[in-house]
Amino acid sequence: MAVFTPVPFDTARNLLLRLGLGELQNLEGIEGGIENTNYFATTDQGAWVLTLFERLTAEQLPFYLRLMKHLAQRGIPVPEPAADARGQLLHSVCGKPAAVVNRLAGKSVLVPEPQHCAAVGDMLARMHLAGRDFELRQPNLRGLPWWNETAPLVLPHLDEAQAALLREELAYQNHIAASSRYAALPRGPIHADLFRDNVLFDGDRLSGFFDFYFAGVDTWLFDLAVCLNDWAIDWHAGRHDPLRAAAMLDAYQAVRPLEAAERQLLPAMLRAGALRFWISRLWDWYLPREARMLKPHDPAHFERVLRERATHPAFILSESATA
């Protein structure tokens, strides 16, 4: 989340009135994130989030908006896009495609305990199953093809050791993606960016998953690996945290047990998740866009995570997770 496009108060007010969401009382730009323009909008009827899409096109956006609607209608706590009188979920603000969703209750837990990881694992599995009958198909736009396209753009900014790591890991992930084991992995709509700041807790209750604008159809295992790489990692060293990882995996598998191919490829997908975010953070760090309130993330963290995942590939599922 960030502010690339300033939105006049009256422009936001007119949109919210047209959507039947009440009279705008306060409009506040949201810090954090790097992709879209986001505002908190408070009306006399409730609290909303207004998003202007800076990179995604009007052709791509129906997938995300309809996926959120689909999941919300199946009991997954996600923001539900507001429709106009014609049932349209995608709107236009300041010449940009835009959406308005309800603001979920709660706050992010940035120092999670095992019980938070378990709650995320449980709901992630439920979300995967709830998306099985979602009819739209759109690939993960930050998947392997994007890594292959973007790596040459960031390589000139790296030192020799970093460049070697990037080239070697990219070659490894291309090899994995061409394997029959990878082809056997179950797939469906995934969040693809379910970090701690994209999950809300209202007290001890998980109250929401949000920011679905990196979602796409990919392997469910990759989605789980992305979560493990943020929720079950020692932040400073980038090392695996076995207690939090076990809590997440056990809770996930209580809803959807991993298949044999998934258990075999979990170490590779943990590396894939680290590589994806290292590349994207390198891109945002060295090739930034102009924006108000934009704070790109330091790419060094996911370089550490990737080195740890590649150096210590053995990932032992807990006894209850493999049962």
Rank of each mutant, 00 (worst) to 15 (best):
E303I: 06
D298R: 01
A300Y: 08
H297W: 00
Q253W: 07
I233V: 15
H297F: 09
D250Q: 14
E262L: 02
A260T: 00
E308R: 07
R292G: 12
L287P: 06
F277M: 07
A274I: 02
L287C: 08
L266G: 02
W231M: 11
E308K: 05
A237W: 13
I233Q: 12
R239M: 14
W231Y: 13
P299W: 00
L270I: 04
P288K: 07
R281F: 00
G238R: 14
H297Y: 07
L270M: 07
R276W: 04
E290A: 11
L265K: 07
R307N: 05
L266H: 01
R281N: 09
A291F: 10
A300H: 10
P288A: 06
L294D: 02
W285Y: 12
L282V: 03
D230I: 06
A246F: 07
H236C: 13
A254D: 04
G273N: 09
F277S: 01
R244I: 05
P242R: 14
A246G: 14
D284W: 00
Q264R: 15
R244H: 08
A268R: 01
Y252D: 06
A232G: 04
H240S: 15
A261Q: 05
R292P: 05
L306C: 08
A272Q: 01
W285D: 09
V255D: 02
M269H: 07
I279R: 08
L282D: 04
M293Y: 12
A268V: 00
W235E: 15
R292L: 12
D241E: 15
A246W: 10
R244P: 06
Y252P: 05
W231I: 10
P288N: 06
V305Y: 11
L265Q: 10
E308N: 12
R276S: 02
M269V: 02
I279Y: 11
A268C: 00
R256V: 08
R239S: 15
Y252N: 04
R256A: 15
V305G: 09
R256L: 15
A261F: 01
P296M: 03
H236I: 14
P267M: 09
R263H: 03
L287T: 04
Y252T: 01
A245V: 01
W231Q: 13
M293W: 11
W231H: 10
L265E: 10
A251N: 13
P296F: 04
R256Y: 14
L258T: 04
F302D: 03
P288I: 06
A254Y: 02
F277D: 04
R263S: 01
I279G: 04
E308L: 05
R244L: 11
K295Y: 09
D298Q: 05
D241T: 08
Y252M: 09
L270E: 04
A260D: 00
V305D: 09
W278R: 09
R281S: 02
L265I: 10
